[in-house]
């Protein structure tokens, strides 16, 4: 068992290493040269810059220096905003996004799961149909559509809340909703279908035949089994929230790291792009690792890991 954990962690580190390498070479391939600007830069300054960014060294030296920096969590300075330290910016802007993400996750768990359970228990009634219709719509409408509709309706026409920024607590409603809508809908559909699947299982029949109370049968026997696939979804949900943040932060004018990433991409700020990409990769891989490890604890059948799903 421990073997499995160790293997997974090593595997994660290897993956990060590969991604860092990929990112590095990708950035090196950027056309137009690193400093092709509208205004030509005087040659002396260009030389200085090249020196600073090690652009004169052979590629492997550059690579080595880059990787050395990565390990120490030093991603260098921004390309476009001279003097701005990448790591610093990340640490500055990240907490805002994380808070939003956390709230969105809470929303998903507190509303999505019970909704799915209730729908499954009341299958084919109007409750089920209504809930699933909403969920299906929620899953298909992209986050920025939700954001836009929310703003024009709630902030615009109805004027109940401020549209942009995060000043008052009410400002959180829109972004959290836009971030979480997709995952909430997905989780409720997933919980429902998982629950339905579980309710049909033979062991449910056994439990009832043994005279166990309805409550016990449901909450002990059904729920644990039903939630297994939901836990598996936590990884991808995290990814959805990350990508959602790019758009939601833009639309709601929130100064988080998602928006900053988009700005960096548009500005071709290579070091910043590399740094933030690595950051996202690390967090995501870490999250998936965490879920994987708890997963084998939740479902006793999966004790020794499988490498690549069926």
């Amino acid at each position: 068992m421990k073997n499995y954990y160790v293997r997974r962690i090593l595997s994660a580190i290897l993956t990060l290493f590969i991604i860092a390498t990929m990112t590095f070479f990708m950035m090196k391939l950027m056309p137009g040269g690193p400093f092709a600007r509208e205004r030509p830069i005087p040659p002396e300054i260009l030389a200085l810059i090249e020196e600073k960014y090690n652009l004169n060294d052979p590629i492997f030296v550059q690579y080595y220096k880059y990787m050395a920096g990565v390990v120490q969590l030093d991603f260098g300075n921004s390309y476009t905003d001279v003097g701005v330290d990448v790591t610093e910016q990340i640490l500055l802007k990240f907490p805002i996004s994380m808070r939003l993400g956390l709230y969105a996750t809470i929303l998903v768990v507190i509303i999505g799961i019970p909704l799915g359970i209730v729908s499954a228990l009341k299958q084919s009634t109007w409750v089920d149909h209504a809930a699933m219709l909403v969920a299906t719509i929620g899953v298909t409408i992209p986050s920025f559509v939700v954001a836009v509709v929310y703003i024009s309706l709630v902030a615009g026409t109805l004027g109940w809340v401020d549209a942009f920024g995060l000043d008052k607590w009410t400002s959180y409603i829109g972004p959290v909703l836009a971030l979480g809508a997709y995952s909430l809908s997905f989780v409720s559909r997933l919980t429902r279908s998982s629950m339905l699947e579980v309710l049909r299982q033979d062991y449910m029949r056994t439990a009832r035949a043994n005279g166990l109370s309805k409550f016990k049968v449901l909450y002990k026997h059904a729920l644990k089994n039903a939630l297994i696939p939901v836990v598996t979804y936590l990884g991808p949900m995290f990814a959805a929230i990350i990508t959602g943040s790019f758009v939601v932060e833009q639309v709601f004018a929130i100064g988080g790291i998602g928006r900053y990433y988009v700005i960096s991409v548009a500005a071709r700020d290579y070091t910043m792009i590399m740094g933030i990409t690595m950051f996202y990769a690390a967090i995501y891989i870490g999250m998936v690792l965490l879920v994987d490890m708890t997963y084998s604890w939740i479902d006793p059948r999966i004790r020794l890991g499988k490498s690549s799903g069926e």
Partner: peptide
């Protein structure tokens, strides 16, 4: 009622089913 029947099930009247592979809850 179902509740009253529960007092019999697993108690005075027991039942076992066809497929043992799927009839026991795998997570406990």
């Amino acid at each position: 009622s179902d509740r009253e029947l529960n007092k019999y099930r697993g108690n005075d009247i027991s039942m076992i089913f066809q497929d043992p592979m799927t009839s026991i809850n795998p997570v406990y």
